[in-house]
Amino acid sequence: MVDEKEITKVQELVYELKVGQVMVKDVITVTPHNLMSELRDLLRDKRISGVPVVDKGRLVGLVSIEDFIKCLTDGKMGSPVEERMNRNVKTLYDNEPLVHAVKEFDRMGYGRFPVVDRESGKLMGIITKGDIIRGLLKKMEIDYQEEEIHRYRASHFFEDIVADKTTLIFQYNVIGKDFDRAGETSSGLKKTLRRMGISPKAIRRLAIATYEAEMNIVVFTDGGEITARVTPQEVRVEVVDSGPGIPDIKKAMEPGFSTAPDWIRELGFGAGMGLANIRKCADAMHLESTVGKGTRLEITVYLNEKEKHGSGNDS
């Protein structure tokens, strides 16, 4: 059973969606000069009951399984399609709203309509009732997902919390030298932030920066910890390891500078772009390191769109 709200939603969508958005674009066609005998395999193999007839891109007729059977009983299988096709074809335009198509299906009782371009009469696709249902369901699914994300929006989330200051903390452990699982933290953080409804652009920058930092842990250390602190204003990712440390941070920040061993290069990393890349993505970046003790990196991305983004300050 569908409730009233959903019915209203479908009614909205049949006005919003266009025929061209739900039709099948890959249409099997024949030319007027094809012979009726050639239709047999087509109708059988593709399990279709009618084929549009197209001449130089323009729709000129429709030949159905009925026409085929009639032709068969007449014993005229050698005649060209143009002699047996129906020239008076009811079509739909690709830019008209779906609601019109629904009405036409109702009125004419046809199984399908060819869809043509309003100006040129060029065949654009074909539409069945099934396509309409699929199109509506798909659109509803997308809308539903968006609604779901919206429902979880961080701003709403934070609004519901009564406190002078709110910070959400997500913590992840990164295993060193485990190249196959590298990236799972960034992937998990990305998913979490998306669920909170944070802007996709901010998420992308955060995910890329975190992934680079995660790869550094995997490549150079035995493991570390990544902590993300989310407030309504910003996401701050702290990356801490107890690895070998960075002797010269300034040098390490230079694009192309790398101390990665060859095997890492062969895995597609270690070209000396990681830290430069993080700086590019972050609004603010802070890196401190002690040789023999470890490294601590802080990446901040502001969530307020008005704040400047990318190529941030490092200190």
Partner: peptide, 25 residues
Amino acid sequence: DLMSDVLAFIKPDALLLTGLNNPQA
């Protein structure tokens, strides 16, 4: 083939052609 460069320069909805055959791709 270098993933940092992919991360730095690729745009969403682009096609990535690569010879790097590992899960990091």
